[in-house]
């Protein structure tokens, strides 16, 4: 597993305590799991996705990622309605391992309250949390 200093944690996304990332793009926010989470889980074999149109509140469970011997729930960084899911993950869940911030994105949501983004951590705060 990677050392904390080797983690790829981009500056242009926000982080949650459950190791999701969220990135505003236009009027939607793209959500995925970060490098730390994919590294901890190991080889991902399945991503359980919500359906387009589902609505969730911040911190609701919206899906899960599975490795061979573990399941990890996915939690909403912010409240909103799902407007797109990454259908490529159905056949290629390994995208989450290989490219968790681009090809391995999980859902796009239309936020119900954009201000919730401000409550999420930036890279520095997230690193601080990881180092405990």
């Amino acid at each position: 597993m990677k050392e904390i200093n080797d983690l790829n944690l981009p500056e242009d996304v926000k982080y949650t305590k459950d190791h999701e990332w969220a990135k505003p793009e236009g009027d939607t926010v793209t959500i995925g799991i970060n490098d730390y989470a994919q590294d901890q889980l190991g080889e991902i074999v399945f991503v359980e996705l919500p359906e387009v149109g589902d609505s969730f509140s911040a911190e609701d469970e919206f899906g899960s990622v599975e490795s061979v011997k573990a399941v990890s729930e996915l939690y909403m960084p912010i409240s909103g309605e799902v407007v797109a899911v990454n259908e490529n993950l159905e056949d290629a869940p390994e995208l989450v391992n290989e490219d968790c911030y681009q090809g391995g994105w999980i859902i796009k949501v239309k936020p119900s309250d954009s201000a919730q983004m401000d409550a999420l951590m930036d890279k520095a705060a997230y690193l601080e949390m990881l180092k405990g």
Binding site: S67, V68, K69, A70, V71
Partner: peptide, 12 residues
């Protein structure tokens, strides 16, 4: 597909 099973997913 063991992640469906009790020893991994426990109460779920």
């Amino acid at each position: 597909l063991s992640t469906r099973e009790q020893h991994i997913r426990r109460e779920k």
